[in-house]
């Protein structure tokens, strides 16, 4: 840890403030059962004006709250537990499952990366948008390793999560996909934890399938993206 740019008391205050804010929003979300009241989104919406008003620049905020960022790694490891719980359900068809997810991830990664490069011409944004279907801790870690912009990843992950979780099931019904396994795996792959939470509220089977899909697809993405990005980069 380095605290070069900031003093410890300010760092402590900013960290505690972030914690308190996050906790109160997630309390409100639980109490009133409002899925859209996402604590990460709304904490960010409150913190940004606070930093602007008080003239705190982003590097100092980031240094001050590095303790929170450091928790990303253990949080990722903790995802091994739901993976363990769901392992028995995917044993029977793990090969097909991995093949379908890997193919889907490759195709969509190529499309997101290419579209972003064509429309916006910025590699770090293209990397961030290619990682939008991954669960947030892994998405942020992967973006930072590939020198993408992790704040764009966090934002993109949230949009992918809410749009797919809310409209995805309706869309799948429309294209005549009705089995729990197809809906669960599809929404889990596209909309990760947010999808999984929303599906679990109505149908536990779909929720279980989506939680397998989100972890497997995050692992596959971690394996695939370091191969695909260097292949695509020279094209633009």
């Amino acid at each position: 840890m380095s605290f070069d740019n900031i003093n410890l008391i300010d760092a402590l205050i900013l960290t505690l403030m972030t914690l308190a804010l996050y906790q109160s929003i997630s309390w409100a979300q639980q109490k009133w059962q409002l899925i859209w009241l996402n604590p990460m989104l709304f904490s960010t919406i409150v913190i940004i004006p606070y930093l602007l008003v008080n003239n705190i620049d982003y590097p100092s905020y980031r240094d001050s709250t590095q303790v929170l960022n450091a928790l990303l790694e253990p949080a990722t490891v903790a995802l091994g537990f739901p993976l363990y719980q769901q392992l028995q359900h995917i044993k029977r068809y793990w090969k097909e499952l991995i093949a379908i997810l890997a193919l889907g991830i490759c195709i969509v990664m190529i499309i997101s990366f290419s579209l972003t490069m064509l429309l916006i011409h910025q590699t770090e944004i293209a990397i961030a948008l290619s990682l939008k279907s991954v669960t947030t801790p892994i998405g942020i870690t992967l973006t930072e390793r590939l020198q993408g912009d992790s704040s764009i990843t966090a934002f993109a992950i949230m949009i992918a999560g809410f749009s797919g979780a809310i409209l995805g099931p309706i869309w799948l019904k429309f294209i005549n996909i009705r089995s729990d396994i197809a809906i669960g795996l599809a929404i889990g792959t596209g909309s990760h934890v947010i999808g999984s939470i929303i599906l679990s509220k109505n149908n536990l089977n779909q929720g279980a399938y989506s939680s397998v899909a989100l972890i497997i697809s995050a692992l596959l993405t971690a394996l695939i993206i370091p191969i695909i990005v260097p292949l695509l980069l020279p094209l633009f």
Partner: peptide, 29 residues
């Protein structure tokens, strides 16, 4: 553009996985 790219690719991914799983995995699950 950013929001459009996210929405389009998310729905391509969801449809792709949904269609293939429905076709190949529903009998086994």
């Amino acid at each position: 553009s950013i929001v459009a790219i996210i929405l389009v690719t998310t729905f391509i991914l969801i449809s792709f996985v949904g269609i293939l799983v429905e076709k190949y995995l529903t009998t086994k699950s």
